[in-house]
């Protein structure tokens, strides 16, 4: 997941503009949980998201798409956490699993699928690394050097689709964005070497997943939501500590 995330982030294939509505959703969920007007809390969250995305994108010098893709699952995760706080919410466990995932429902077969998928992704990336690297740098230049870029873009979109589908059980369909974007975006704060980014992103992904799992067990909250919240916190810390940002600010002074 973290591996494919590198390419999705670098090629700017990320979706635009889901964050606002889901900010409202998280707010409304908080409203229900705390018995205040859901409309009011929804509005607060949505406008909060809007105010966050622009300035963060500016400050972090990330593409607004990337920020959107990080804020979107964070809002969803918060919404689900708030919803589980409401005792009357009676979602069937199956529905709940699809929405926010459950590591407990993972079977051995699921694990085999995921490991196979990881090996296959690794192999594909190894063999077409040269093309992917050039396209991430600049698609037009890659074309000018004689690389037919279209099949490789389609390959990444296809792989992202497959990886998302197979990871559904773990984090749930609505939170899956976080695992795709957060590790890659976190590592890109630190490294100026694309090869290191590709190696480190899956590792960061694994570490945040395991930490999220422990947080979930400790506080008895949904696993998917905890993974998303932990990986977003890790990204936020990375943003604050990033030597790249600091150097730029110094240059500006």
């Amino acid at each position: 997941m973290g591996l494919i995330g590198v390419f999705v982030v670098r090629m700017r294939l990320s979706a635009i503009g889901y964050s606002m509505s889901h900010g409202a959703f998280a707010g409304a969920a908080l409203g229900v949980a705390t018995a205040t007007n859901p409309l009011l809390t929804g509005l607060l969250f949505a406008s909060g998201t809007a105010f966050l995305i622009g300035p963060i994108a500016d400050k972090a010098r990330l593409h607004a798409d990337t920020i959107t893709s990080i804020v979107f699952p964070l809002n969803m995760a918060l919404a689900f956490v708030f919803l589980t706080l409401v005792p009357e919410v009676g979602l069937s466990s199956q529905v709940a699993n699809v929405l926010w995932g459950s590591i407990i429902s993972m079977t051995n077969a699921d694990l085999v699928y995921l490991v196979t998928l990881f090996a296959a992704t690794l192999a594909i990336v190894y063999f077409v690394w040269k093309e992917l690297f050039a396209i991430m740098f600049n698609r037009k230049l890659a074309e000018a050097d004689g690389i037919n870029t279209k099949p490789f873009i389609y390959l990444i979109i296809f792989l992202a689709g497959v990886v998302v589908t197979f990871s559904l059980k773990l984090v749930g369909g609505l939170l899956i964005y976080a695992l795709l974007f957060n590790p890659a975006s976190t590592v890109l704060q630190f490294s100026e070497n694309m090869r290191k980014v590709v190696v480190a992103s899956p590792l960061v992904g694994m570490a945040t997943t395991v930490s999220g799992l422990f947080v979930s067990l400790f506080f008895d909250l949904p696993v998917g939501s905890c993974i998303v919240i932990v990986s977003t916190i890790v990204f936020a810390v990375a943003l604050l500590l990033s030597p790249k940002r600091r150097r730029k600010e110094e240059n500006e002074k």
């Binding site: 010098r61 063999f127 077409v128 690394w129 040269k130 093309e131 690297f133 050039a134 740098f137 600049n138 230049l141 890659a142 050097d145 004689g146 690389i147 890109l188 490294s191 100026e192 070497n193 694309m194 290191k196 980014v197 790249k244 150097r247 730029k248």
Partner: peptide, 28 residues
Amino acid sequence: FMVKPGEPYTALDVVLMGRYGQIGFLHH
């Protein structure tokens, strides 16, 4: 053509890319 600061490519990476079209598919 300007690469923004912080982009993860060295100058040699960029120059080597010029040869990629000739190296051929699946070759490093």
